[in-house]
Every structure is written in C-alpha cells, then in structure tokens.
C-alpha cells in the first residue's frame, strides 16, 4: 500500500475534530467541506417504472476535474440533468458549497453557480460570437419599456472573455455558422465559465471534434481548472479522462459502481467496472 493511499484510507479517523461535509453520511468516505464543492447524496430518479438513477452518491472537489464514465444508458446524462436543474431528483439530496440545494430550473442552478455546456451547445448559428456570449445576459440600458443593447460594452467584454480563456477566433463578429466545431465548443465553454460560475458541467465536450480541435478544447478545460473552476466531465474517452481528471466515477445501469483517484486507476480497471466485471459493491 502506497503512502498516499494509506493516508487516504486512514486520514478520516485520525482527525475526528474535523467537521463533516454537510449531508455526508458518517463513514461514507466523503472528504471535508473545504474540499467538496458538490455532493450528490443518494439521488434516485424514476421515470414511471423505469429507474434511471438508483441512490447515486458522488462528489466533486473544488479546483478539480471530476469525470463520470459509463456506457450509454448508464445514467450519466440523467444525473447531470438532475444537477443542472433540468430534472428534479425523485429522492436524495444535492449539496452545493456546503448547503442543500433544490433547483427547479436550469436558471436557478445557473444563479447558484452551476453552468452546463450541453452537447448541442445551446448557441444560435445565425448570431455573432459576441451575441452568443451574451445571449439572455445582454448588457442593456433602460429606455422606458425598452431594453436597449449596449453593444459597445458587450463587444469589449466579449474580447476580454475570449482573451481570458485564450480562445482564438477570426473575429467576434463572425456568425457561429462560419466557425469550426472546436471554435464553437470553445465559445460555449468560455460563455459557461464566465458569469461567476463555480462548477462547469460538460457533456462529451469533444465527441464531435477532430484530433487537433480536441487537443485545443482539452487545453482550454485545463486552463479553466487552473483558474480555479471545478469541472464535472462526462466522457466516453478513457484516454481523455485519464489525461484530464483527478477523480473518476464509474456508473452502470443507474448506479455508481466505483470511484477512484485518477492517478490510482487504469484504463483497464475502468473498462472492467463499466462492463461489470469489477465493482466496489
């Protein structure tokens, strides 16, 4: 047993004065509140007779990339929809920044600081880059009932947002349809990472991209983490998960079947857990 793993296993009992993370059941192995940003505690989701999630417990640490892997239909998408406010869990609890939260809509999750980059990106092809960056967050000046766009400020801020995340584009005036898939993905990510968000959820951010574009998006994701953002990454790509993440959760048929620190696992072990050859339960 390596020293780090030894510490991990035995750290909790040795520091009994440490306050437990709110919502964490005793003996669950959940790290302390200073580390955990998001805690999903025994969340289940039923659609009629179908059990999409069964008592899922997992967490995401601050400043880390947390990956969720699993086969199609394992419940990954349902889980992130529960976290991002699109679904509400049938049972179980969500804790964000140490407080229990209930999101009735994506808008509420967004206000709490949870942004989601969906696979379809939720961007408008016919609008320009800066218009998309500010979609439904337009800077406006009030004139009676009219909300008049402050285009100058939005363009300036759009440039600043893209520079901050080192996203390179031909022009912020380009319409989205003129840009490549990787550029669009980068814009969607930059948009989600702005606005004071604390946790970024990404659903297969590179699934539709080529090798070079995938690398660029991965670099962007790492930069965001280095800037202090926590990231929840859904991915089919084990190589990517091992490259980017610090923590991996494995899901199978609506359950979490294992959690590993990324540096303590291998691609083979993840495959074994996904296919059910191996499980922690």
């Amino acid at each position: 047993m390596s020293p780090t793993e030894f510490e991990r296993v035995f750290s909790a009992p040795q520091t009994p004065e440490r306050t437990p993370t709110p919502g964490a059941p005793p003996g669950s192995g959940v790290p302390g509140p200073a580390e955990v940003l998001l805690l999903v505690e025994r969340v289940s989701k039923h659609f009629g007779a179908i059990v999409a999630l069964h008592e899922v417990t997992l967490w995401a640490r601050r400043g880390e990339i947390t990956a969720i892997v699993g086969d199609n239909g394992a419940g990954k998408s349902t889980l992130i929809k529960c976290i991002s406010g699109l679904h509400s869990p049938s049972s179980g609890r969500l804790f964000f920044e140490g407080k229990e939260v209930h999101f009735a809509s994506p808008q509420e999750a967004r206000q709490a600081g949870i942004e989601t980059v969906y696979q379809n990106l939720a961007m408008i092809e016919d609008l320009t880059v800066w218009q998309n960056l500010f979609l439904n967050r337009e800077r406006v000046k009030r004139l009676g009932p009219l909300a008049i766009l402050d285009r100058r400020t939005m363009r300036r801020e759009a440039l600043r947002m893209l520079r901050q995340f080192e996203v390179h584009l031909p022009s912020i005036h380009a319409r989205l349809r003129q840009l490549s898939g990787g550029q669009r993905q980068a814009i969607a990510i930059a948009r989600a990472a702005s606005w004071g968000s604390r946790l970024l959820i990404m659903d297969e951010p590179t699934a539709a991209l080529g090798v070079r574009e995938t690398r660029r998006v991965e670099e962007l994701i790492l930069r965001l983490r280095d800037q202090g953002l926590a990231i929840l990454l859904i991915s089919h790509n084990f190589e990517q998960v091992l490259r980017l993440s610090q923590q991996v959760w494995v899901m199978r048929s609506g359950r979490v079947v294992g959690g590993r620190r990324t540096n303590e696992t291998t691609s083979d072990e993840l495959v074994a857990m996904i296919t059910g050859v191996k499980s922690d339960e």
Partner: peptide, 15 residues
C-alpha cells in the same frame, strides 16, 4: 438590432 427583444427574437427564430 438595438434592443434585447430583437436579439431574443432572432434567437427564437434561429434555434
């Protein structure tokens, strides 16, 4: 082109 309503209208029609 100069109000939030206009942008949202284009967004609604676009996607």
């Amino acid at each position: 082109f100069y109000t939030r309503f206009g942008t949202h209208l284009l967004a609604t029609g676009g996607d």
